[in-house]
Amino acid sequence: MPITIGVVKETFPEERRVALTPNAVTQLKKAALEPLIENGAGAAAGFPDAAYAEAGATLLPAREEIFRRADIIVQVRALGANPDRWSSDLALMREGQTLIALVEPLAAPDPVRAAAERGLTTFALELIPRITRAQTMDVLSSQANLAGYKAVIIAAQLLPKIFPMMMTAAGTITPARLFVIGAGVAGLQAIATARRLGAVVSAYDVRPAVREQIESLGARFVELPLEARDAQDASGYARAMDEEFYRRQAELLGDVIAEQDVVISTAAVPGQRAPLLITRPMVERMAPGSVIVDLAAERGGNCELTRPGEIIQHRGVYISGPLNLPATLPFHASQLFARNVAAFILNLIRNGQIDPTADDQIVAETLVTYAGQVVHQRVRQKLGLAA
C-alpha cells in the first residue's frame, strides 16, 4: 500500500495558504505516494479542486476522513502555531500517525507534549537547519522572502511620499529614505524590493558578516560601534544578546532612525520575544508621516509602540504590526511552502517507509515527538523535562 499524505483546510484565522499545491501533488505521485485532499483545501489560495484531481490527488469531502485515512498529515499551522483550534485536530489523530507542519515548539511547547501523549510522530518545520542540503526544505526562508516584499508594499501605501526620485517640469522630487533593521531573509528581500521602487536604502544587522550581502543589493551598511560576538547560532539564526547590548544598540540607532522616512524591522530570535529596538522616544524623533513596519509583531515587536495586527499613529508616525504576511500572498506562498514540504517528505521516506530514526541531520533536528515522548532536547528544556 502506498503511503498516504493528507491535506486539510487550514483553521487558523485568516490563514489562506494550503500545505500542498497541485504541482506538489504531481511530484509526490511520481514518488508513488498517495495525496488525499479535503474538498476546498486550496480554494482560498487559488487552487481549485479540479486542479488537484487533474494532478492525481484523491479528494474527500470530510475532514475526519482525511485524518482517518492519512499516514502523514501535512498542515501549514498545527499545534502551537494554531493556538485556538489545534486540540480539535489532535482529537482526530491516532497513535503512530505523522504530523508535518509549523508547530511553534519552542514558543508554545505544551501542545507538543499533548501530541507526544497522543503517540504522534511530529516534525516541526521551523526547526529545519540552515545547511546547504536543507535549503529546498526551508519554509521559514521561503515565507520570509514574501514577508519582506509585502512589508515594503505596506510602507509604500502608508507613506505620504513616493519612493523614487523624479525629475519633472515642476522640479525634482527627492527619493524616500528607507532603513532595514535585520538583514536576514526578510530584511534582504525588503532591501531589494525598496531598491527596485527607487528608495535610498540603508540597513543594519548585529552580524557584521552580512555587510557584503547588504551592499550587493545596493544598500548602505550602517555600522555601529558595538561588539557583537556570537550573534549567530550554529543553525544560522540570530542569537539573543544581553540587555546591555540592546540598550546601547537602541541609543546608537536613534540617530539613524530619526533621519528615515521608512523603517522596516525584522529582528527576531526563534522561540523568544523579539528584541526591543525602537523605543517611544526614538519614534517621537521621526518626522510626521514617517512609517515603521514591524515584522517582528508576532513575537511582541521590535518597536515599543507596536500593536500586533494593527496600524496606529503616534505623533504622526504610522506604526504597522502586520501578522502572518505570507498568508496575504497565498498563491505564491503556498507554491513555495508546498515545494519545501514535498522536498522534506521525499527526504523523510526511505525505501518506501517513514523513518524518523534515520541518521540524517534534517530528520534529527526537526523531530519533536516520537514513540510517546518529546524527543527534541530544546523543547524538552522548555517543558522542564529531564535531558
Rank of each mutant, 00 (worst) to 15 (best):
I3A: 09
P13R: 08
E15A: 01
R17F: 12
L20Q: 05
T21L: 02
N23H: 13
N23G: 06
A31K: 15
I37T: 01
G42E: 08
A44Q: 15
D49E: 07
A50R: 13
A51H: 12
E54H: 14
A55F: 09
E65H: 11
I66C: 04
I66F: 11
A70Q: 09
R77G: 11
A78W: 08
A81I: 01
N82H: 04
D84K: 12
R85N: 13
S88W: 13
L90D: 02
A91Y: 13
R94Y: 06
T98L: 07
I100M: 09
E104H: 14
A107W: 12
A108W: 06
A124F: 09
P129L: 02
I131H: 08
T132W: 03
M137K: 03
I154F: 06
Q157T: 14
P160G: 01
I162K: 02
M165C: 04
M167A: 14
T174Q: 15
I181C: 00
A183Y: 05
A186T: 08
L188Y: 00
L188F: 02
R196T: 06
L197W: 13
A199V: 04
D205Q: 11
R207K: 14
A209W: 07
I214T: 00
A219I: 10
R220T: 15
L224I: 05
P225A: 09
P225T: 07
D242K: 00
E243H: 14
R247M: 12
R248I: 01
Q260E: 15
I264D: 04
T266K: 05
V283Y: 02
M286N: 07
A287D: 10
D294M: 08
A297D: 06
T306M: 04
R307G: 00
I312N: 03
R315P: 11
R315C: 10
L323H: 08
T328P: 06
A333L: 04
Q335R: 14
L336D: 02
L336G: 09
L348H: 12
N351M: 15
G352I: 08
T357Y: 13
D359L: 13
D360K: 12
Y370A: 06
G372N: 08
R380A: 03
A387G: 14
